[in-house]
Design a protein around this nucleic acid. Structure first.
Length: 624
RNA sequence: GCCGACGUAGCUCAGCCGGUAGAGCAGCGGUUUCGUAAACCGCCGGUCGGCAGUUCGAGUCUGCCCGUCGGCUCCA
C-alpha cells in the first residue's frame, strides 16, 4: 500500500473543506506571496492554491530559499495582517491583463492568461470568467486569481510556514523548477496546535525511525539503496502474514506457484515489457558470449501466463486462480526512494485469475470481498472505491474496454457498493478498481487493486476450450491485496505505530522474574507458552524490575508477565499489557486463564488494546 | 532524474575563524537480586560518507561522486 503524499496535492474537486476555509487558506497564500515580493522584488509567481490542511505558493526567485528564510517571511506576513489590508477584486479584459502582468514581468501569469484564453475554466485557482480576467489585490501584491478571499488580511488566522521544496512549473519535469513554500493556516490557535501535533504524531510513527528502534528492517548503502533487509523481528511479521495469506488463498480456491526471478528477453519482448517498461528493468544480463539476454523480472504476469499455458485448459477448469508471493525488481529513480514504502526490490501478493467473460464479474466480486476482509483484519477503515476507466492512450478495442469496465462496475453494483468513477484513470492495458483506506490517524493509503488485463491475453494468445470445443480467448484479472509486502508492512508499522497485534508481534510475551528465586517458575511459564506456539522472551538479566519493564515496553512486547515468589506459590502471573499505565497491571491471573486469553486474542487476530483510531482530519477539526 | 538541505561511534548529537575527535544511550566486564516505564563502577568503540584539490596542516575550505532527508516527477 502506498500512502498518498504526506503533504497532499491540490484537491481538484470541490473538496476543500468548506468555502470559508478555502478562502482562508487561499488568502494566506496571497499574503505569503506578498511577503516574498517584499523580500524579493524580482520574484516571479507560479500557482499558489489551497491544499488539504494548508496551502503552498510557487516562486521563481534569484536565490534558493533556506529554512532560515521562513521566519523572515512569516514576520512580514504578520506585518501585513496587522495592517488590516482589504482584498480587492477587479476584472480586466484578457489583453489588458496580459499587458499588466507583462509589465510586471510575471511570465508565468502571462502564460496562464494566454492559456485560459478567456475561456471559463474550472481547474485552476487563477480564473477567468466570460472573457474577463479576475484579479485580487492586497497592498502592492496583485494576483491573477478566481477567489474567493477573506475580506481583509486581519481575518487570517494562526498560520505557520512548514517547508521549502522544489516543484516544476505546471508539474511537468521538462519545465523550469520553481521554489515552493508550504504553509498551514487555521481559524483558531487550537486547531493549528492540533494540526501541528498531528504532524508530530506522523513523525513519531515514521516507519523508518520505528524500523531502526525496533530492529525491523535496514537499508544498507553498500548492499544497495532501495533494497530492504528484513531483520529478524519484521521477518516474523512477514512470515505470519504470508502464512495467513497462503491459507486464505488456498481456502478460496487459489493455486499457488513459484516463478523464476530472471527470464529470457524473448518473453519480455512478447509481453511488451522491454518496449513499455524497459527503462525500469534491471538488465540485460548477457550469457553465452552475449548471445542470450536475460532480464530480472519486474512483474509476475508473464510467468503466470506460462504456468497457465503449461497445458490446455477446458472451460470446466475455469476460473483458474494463480497466485504467488512474487519478488520483483524495478529500477526507480534515486530521488523517489523512501524507506520501505518506495523500494527497488519487493514482493507482490500477486494473482492472475483466468476465466471466461461470463465468469469475470463474479470473480471480480469475490476478489473485492476478499480485499475488504483483508482491510478489516488490520483495522483500516472508511474504504473508498474508485473505478478507473479507459485512458486516452490505450491498447485494445473499445468493445473490449466496454466489456471490462462493465464487469468491474457490475461487480460493485451487485454489492451495492458506492464507488466513484475516475474517468480516464485506468492504465493503458486495463481498467481497474482501486480501494483506498484511512489509517489510524486519518491518512489515506492506496489499498488493493483489481484490473482486467486487455493486453497480455492477446499478446500471449491465452485461451481455453469452450463448450463447443472451440478455442476461446481467456479473460485475465490481475489483482493484489497487500500490493507489495514492503509497502504494506511499512504502512502497517505507521498504522500501528509499531504496536503490532498479538498474532503478528515478534515478541508476544516478555517473562520477567522478579528475583533469581522465581527463575524456575519463569522458565516453566515460558515453556508452557512456547508449547502453545507463542514467541516468548525470558528476561533473566540483572537489573531492577522497573528497568526490565521499561525495556520490554520499549521493545513493544505485547505482554509483560511478571512472576515472583508469590506467583510461583499460587501458580499465577502478574499481567501487564503493553502501553498500560501506572498500576494497571493485573495481578494473580491464573495460568490457564492467561493462556486461554492469549490464544483467543492471537487466533482471532484481534487488534491490540493500545490501538486507537485518531480522527483529526481537517473536516473533523472544523466541525468540532 | 530535478531543486534545496544534510552525512562525525550501532543510535541521538557536540566539535568556534582550518592545528591531529567528545558526550549520553547501546555494547562488553564487574557490582547490585530488586514487585511494574531509566541501579552503580569500569572498559571498548570513529580512514569524521567516498575520491580528488587548496594548505605547512582539512571533520572544518573547494570540486566531483555516493547516500539520506523535504518536495517535484514517477510508482506496488
Amino acid at each position: 500500500m502506498r500512502r498518498t503524499a504526506p503533504m497532499p496535492k491540490t484537491e481538484r474537486k470541490s473538496d476543500h473543506g468548506d468555502e470559508a476555509l478555502y478562502a482562508l487558506r487561499h488568502s494566506t497564500a496571497h499574503v505569503m506571496a506578498g511577503a516574498v515580493l517584499e523580500l524579493f522584488p524580482e520574484a516571479k509567481f507560479g500557482f499558489g492554491p489551497p491544499v488539504a490542511d494548508g496551502f503552498y505558493y510557487d516562486f521563481d526567485l534569484p536565490r534558493p530559499l533556506t529554512d532560515e528564510d521562513l521566519p523572515r517571511i512569516e514576520e512580514r506576513m504578520r506585518a501585513t495582517i496587522a495592517r488590516d489590508l482589504p482584498f480587492e477584486h477587479r476584472e480586466m479584459s484578457a489583453p489588458d491583463a496580459i499587458g499588466f502582468f507583462t509589465q510586471r514581468r510575471q511570465d508565468y501569469k502571462v502564460e496562464q492568461i494566454e492559456k485560459l484564453g478567456g475561456k471559463d475554466r474550472e481547474d485552476d485557482t487563477a480564473g477567468a470568467r466570460n472573457g474577463k480576467i479576475s484579479i485580487y489585490q492586497h497592498g502592492d501584491f496583485v494576483d491573477l486569481c478566481r477567489g474567493p478571499h477573506v475580506k481583509r488580511t486581519s481575518e487570517i488566522g494562526p498560520f505557520k510556514l512548514l517547508s521549502v521544496a522544489g516543484a516544476y512549473w505546471r508539474g511537468n519535469e521538462r519545465n523550469p523548477q520553481l521554489q515552493r513554500i508550504y504553509g498551514t493556516v487555521w481559524p483558531t490557535q487550537k486547531q493549528l496546535d492540533e494540526y501541528l501535533e498531528k504532524l508530530k504524531e506522523i513523525e513519531r510513527r515514521d516507519h523508518r525511525a520505528l524500523g531502526r528502534d525496533l530492529e525491523l528492517f535496514r537499508i544498507d548503502e553498500e548492499l544497495g539503496s532501495g533494497l530492504v533487509l528484513w531483520l529478524p523481528n519484521l521477518a516474523i511479521v512477514r512470515e505470519e502474514l504470508e502464512t495467513w495469506w497462503r491459507q486464505v488463498h488456498r481456502a478460496r480456491g487459489y493455486t499457488l506457484v513459484y516463478t523464476p526471478h530472471i527470464a529470457h528477453e524473448k518473453i519480455y519482448q512478447r509481453s511488451g515489457h522491454i518496449e513499455k517498461y524497459g527503462e525500469n528493468m534491471y538488465g540485460p544480463l548477457l550469457l553465452d558470449e552475449g548471445t542470450q539476454r536475460f532480464w530480472i523480472k519486474p512483474m509476475n504476469c508473464p510467468g503466470h501466463i506460462k504456468v497457465y499455458q503449461s497445458k490446455i485448459h477446458s472451460y470446466r477448469e475455469l476460473p483458474l486462480r494463480i497466485g504467488e508471493l512474487g519478488t520483483v525488481y524495478r529500477y526507480e529513480r534515486g530521488g523517489t526512494l523512501h524507506g520501505m514504502l518506495r523500494v527497488r526490490g519487493f514482493t507482490q501478493d500477486d494473482s492472475h485469475i483466468f476465466c471466461s467473460w461470463a465468469q469475470a464479474q463474479s470473480e471480480i466480486g469475490k476478489v473485492f470481498d476478499l480485499a475488504m476482509e483483508f482491510l478489516r483484519t488490520f483495522g483500516y477503515r472508511e474504504p473508498r472505491i474508485y473505478l478507473s476507466t479507459r485512458p486516452e492512450r490505450r491498447l485494445g478495442s473499445d468493445e473490449m474496454w466496454d466489456k471490462a469496465e462493465k464487469a468491474l462496475a457490475d461487480a460493485l453494483g451487485v454489492r451495492e457498493v458506492p464507488f466513484q468513477i475516475d474517468e480516464g484513470g485506468g492504465v493503458f492495458y486495463a481498467p481497474k478498481i482501486d480501494i483506498k483506506v484511512m489509517d489510524a490517524i486519518g491518512r489515506e493509503w492506496q489499498g488493493p487493486t483489481i484490473q482486467i488485463d486487455l493486453n497480455l491475453p492477446e499478446r500471449f494468445d491465452v485461451t481455453f476450450v469452450n463448450e463447443k470445443g472451440e478455442r476461446e480467448r481467456a479473460v485475465m484479472i490481475h489483482r493484489v491485496l497487500f500490493g507489495s509486502l514492503e509497502r504494506f508492512v511499512g504502512g502497517l508499522i505507521e498504522h500501528f505505530a509499531g504496536n503490532f497485534p498479538l498474532w503478528l508481534n515478534w515478541e508476544q510475551a516478555a517473562i520477567i522474574p522478579v528475583r533469581e528465586t522465581a527463575r524456575p517458575y519463569a522458565e516453566e511459564l515460558a515453556g508452557k507458552l512456547r508449547a502453545a506456539g507463542f514467541r516468548v522472551t525470558l528476561d533473566d538479566q540483572p537489573g531492577d524490575l522497573r528497568t526490565r519493564i521499561k525495556e520490554a515496553q520499549r521493545r513493544k512486547a505485547s505482554y509483560m508477565l511478571v512472576v515472583g515468589d508469590k506467583e510461583a506459590v499460587a501458580g499465577t502471573v502478574s499481567v501487564r499489557r503493553r502501553g498500560a499505565g501506572q498500576g494497571e497491571e493485573e495481578r494473580g491471573v491464573k495460568l490457564d486463564d492467561l493462556l486461554a486469553r492469549l490464544v483467543a486474542e492471537r487466533d482471532t487476530k484481534a487488534l491490540p488494546a493500545d490501538f486507537q483510531l485518531r480522527v483529526t482530519s481537517a473536516a473533523d477539526a472544523l466541525s468540532s
